[in-house]
């Protein structure tokens, strides 16, 4: 059995309402790097909350390390494995001093004081914010605040880090900061689930799952970028470089359609 498994999951927020996710089945292993992409209302944020048991499927089953999220008694253990970072860093902080905030998770785990301090230092240095330990988060930039929010989850040492549109409110600089941290964490073996509507970010993942109307319409690697029309139909905007490449291809140039980043496009253009 896979580490995280969604088995024919249906979920609707109110009875009789349209399903937010329908018949969803997929699985994740430790160390994976998956991007969940979809436009607003495609059910991607619902998936994050289903994964750590904040929401329970209307039908079907979500299991983490063999434990079902339906079982309230195992939620604590599930949340030790699955750490979810949400969109707005301001609404995820519980304390006015950064180190106190990071300590919140390990404190809930019931760790002894010295262990908590170790974890706080480790989590803060993993996101490159150790020097702000004694400071307050209010004066930080959006990207820095979100890195603090990620550190708050890291201190619990989850196996899977879920980022629920954690870059949506950030400026490009902040987005880059967060993406760099996330890639580094994945390189260290932490599974990452990136929920986003930016295709550029999704391109960093090894696996891309595209959602539309609560259903998976694509699950695979970067070849998705060749399916420009389908993506547009799902309400997803392609990265500028990808659409440039796609148009060039249409005009008859020999260029790959899987171009996402500006550097890649520059190189491909030079080779033409």
């Amino acid at each position: 059995m896979a580490f995280v498994e969604f088995d024919k999951v249906n979920f609707s927020y109110r009875e009789g309402e349209k399903n937010a996710v329908s018949d969803l089945s997929f699985s994740l292993e430790k160390g994976d790097f998956v991007a969940l992409v979809g436009h607003n209302g495609s059910g991607k944020s619902t998936i994050a909350k289903l994964m750590n048991g904040l929401l329970v499927p209307t039908s079907g089953k979500v299991t983490v390390d063999g434990m079902s999220t339906e079982n309230e008694a195992s939620l604590f253990d599930i949340r030790k494995h699955i750490g979810v970072v949400f969109q707005n860093p301001d609404n995820q902080m519980v304390a006015t001093i950064i180190e106190d905030d990071i300590a919140f998770g390990p404190e809930n785990l019931g760790l002894p004081s010295e262990k908590i301090r170790e974890r706080v230092d480790w989590a803060l240095s993993s996101v490159g914010m150790l020097e702000y330990k004694k400071g307050t988060p209010f004066r930080l930039s959006g990207g820095q605040k979100q890195r603090i929010a990620i550190a708050g989850i890291l201190a619990i040492r989850p196996d899977v880090l879920v980022l629920d549109e954690s870059t949506a409110m950030l400026d490009p600089e902040g987005r880059r900061e967060v993406m760099k941290v996330v890639s580094e964490l994945n390189a260290l073996g932490m599974a990452v689930v990136m929920i986003t509507h930016f295709m550029e970010e999704a391109a960093l993942a090894k696996r891309i799952i595209v959602l539309n109307e609560g259903r998976i319409i694509f699950d695979g690697g970067r070849e998705i970028f060749a399916h420009a029309e389908e993506l547009n139909a799902a309400g997803i905007e392609l990265p500028v470089c990808t659409s440039v490449a796609a148009r060039l291809k249409k005009m008859g140039y020999d260029i790959s359609e899987q171009i996402v980043l500006p550097e890649e496009l520059a190189e491909a253009l030079c080779r033409l």
Partner: peptide, 20 residues
């Protein structure tokens, strides 16, 4: 949102909670 975030950080009240 805060309640969701606290839940996600393994909060379950005073039960088994320690202090840094």
């Amino acid at each position: 949102e805060l309640a969701d975030a606290m839940d996600s950080r393994c909060y379950r009240g005073a039960k088994g909670r320690t202090k840094m």
